[in-house]
Amino acid sequence: MLYALCFLLFMIGLYCAVVKKNMVKIVVGILIMEYAVNLFLVMLGFRTGGIAPIIDKTQFDAETGRIAASFINSSVDPLPQALVLTAIVISLGSLALMISLCIRTYEKYGTFDITEIRRLRG
């Protein structure tokens, strides 16, 4: 169910990026897609009632030198969070680039409407 909502968010972003005529709205659509994917990645690691994946003394069995099974069974997966952190940084970079392109294009053409910015065709 949650995954379906997440996919719906992705499709809303894709629709916005493909259909809208305003450059800024296209950028917003792309960002919605990125957030949907980030949300999806975080949900992959989520576990209802999970605990933070940090090993302290109570979870460490000193005699066998192993981590307690209860920890393995209840901790959330930390890897997707690391992935999302990286993905957010990358999307920040592309967002900055896209916004600066929008600003420079507005300076040149005086409009954000992509139907009026059509020097290249064919």
């Binding site: 897609m33 990125e34 994917v37 992935l83 990358i90 040149k108 020097r119 290249l120």
Partner: peptide, 28 residues
Amino acid sequence: CGHEELEASFKYTVLGTIASIFVLFAIG
């Protein structure tokens, strides 16, 4: 940073970013 360069670059950035998001989704 001329008229055509900016327009082409924006088009390329939008499509390229969408491609990257698809790849990231697939990796997920």
